[in-house]
Simulated assay, not measured.
Amino acid sequence: MKSIDKMMHAIVIRVNRIYVSDDDIAFWEEKEVRPTLTIDSMRDVLRVFINGKLIGSANLYSIWSFESEGSVIGHWVKVVQPVQFIKGYNDLLLLSQTVGLQNYGAFFEKDGAGFRGQIKLTGFRNGDIDLSKSSWTYQVGLKGEFLNIYTMEENEKAGWSDLTLDAIPTAFSWYKTYFNSPDGTEPVALDLGSMGKGQAWVNGHHIGRYWTLVAPKDGCQRICDYRGPYNSDKCTTNCGKPTQSCKIKNYPEINL
């Protein structure tokens, strides 16, 4: 298997340039504090980069951890993330990924995604910096998508590197491998249980998205009964197991 780092599918990127003066650095050292990024409300997944380095991501329990990975899903949460700048101009990049929108219930069309409310930096010598009114640079999608490296014509032009069994997973990577077409005419199942969140292509054809999450251990009923008012907890199955483990390929136009 081969891989390319930092080219995984994403939704929206917001970039802002922050200037840090000598007075700011002296203030932080004197007070023994660090500046903090605060976002009033966001969903579903957010990763924060400063000068190209991943410095924070949300986890499944809405707890932020410095230099770690994870995600917040399905609800709006407040983000408070300590950050570290260098003297001069710093590029602050917020990568927002939308997992899916609610498709039933009252006022579901107003739920939305991304960011809500104020985005600000606190802890500066001259006071807080309100980034909500700043000029942001937006980008939808990432480089690998624009280069179409998932197609059979373009993927050989990308800078792939061999992936070893002891390689450390990275936050954003493209992975490529080859397999022989199995005998018979039955559908082929691709087990993506070891992957995280992304999309999959076979011979240049998009076969869908995946996001491997483990379902809660509790909540499955021994007896399934759909009678009465509907709710999303009825007849749940596979508690404690991955919510998605494979994608089924059964498209005639894809020749294996």
Rank of each mutant, 00 (worst) to 15 (best):
I223N: 00
D225P: 04
F172G: 15
D183H: 11
I168A: 10
G184A: 05
H206R: 08
S135W: 08
A200D: 04
E153C: 07
N203P: 02
K143Q: 15
Y210V: 02
D183E: 15
A171S: 12
W136K: 03
D166I: 10
K197G: 08
G196K: 02
G144P: 07
N155T: 05
G204S: 04
C239M: 01
F179G: 07
H205C: 10
L147S: 10
S134Q: 14
N250V: 10
T151P: 05
Y175R: 08
N231T: 08
G204R: 03
I168W: 11
K133F: 13
A167Y: 10
S232W: 02
M152I: 15
K176E: 12
E153Q: 14
T137G: 10
G208T: 02
K247D: 08
D218R: 05
G196Y: 03
K197N: 13
E156Y: 02
E154F: 08
G196L: 06
N148T: 11
L147D: 15
L165G: 03
E154M: 11
G240S: 07
V188A: 02
G159Q: 15
E186N: 15
K241C: 01
G184D: 01
D183K: 14
T170F: 09
S194H: 10
A200N: 02
N231W: 06
D233K: 04
D166N: 14
H206S: 11
V140N: 11
C246G: 10
A189C: 12
N180F: 09
N180T: 12
Q139N: 12
G159T: 14
V188W: 04
Y251R: 11
G159D: 15
G219K: 00
G141E: 05
Q199D: 13
L163V: 12
G208Q: 03
L163N: 13
F179N: 01
S134A: 15
P182I: 04
D183N: 14
K241V: 01
E156A: 05
Q139S: 15
G193F: 01
G144L: 04
G144H: 09
N231V: 02
P182H: 01
K241P: 03
T164R: 12
C246I: 05
N155P: 00
S135L: 13
I149R: 07
A171H: 15
K217M: 00
S194A: 11
K217Y: 00
K157Q: 09
I168C: 06
W160H: 05
F172R: 13
N238G: 00
T151C: 04
T164D: 13
N155W: 07
L142W: 14
A215F: 03
W136Q: 06
G240I: 02
L213F: 04
Q139I: 09
Y150P: 04
N148C: 11
E186M: 14
G204Q: 04
N238C: 03
W160E: 05
T185M: 01
K217V: 01
K249C: 13
T243E: 06
F179S: 10
A215T: 06
H205W: 14
L163M: 15
Q139C: 09
L165C: 02
L190I: 15
Y226W: 14
S173I: 06
T151K: 02
Y178M: 13
K241L: 14
L147R: 08
C220F: 00
G141A: 09
T151F: 01
G208M: 00
W160Q: 05
G193V: 07
Y230E: 02
D233F: 09
T236Q: 10
L192F: 09
S181G: 12
Q244K: 08
G198N: 08
I223K: 00
A200K: 03
Y226P: 06
M195S: 09
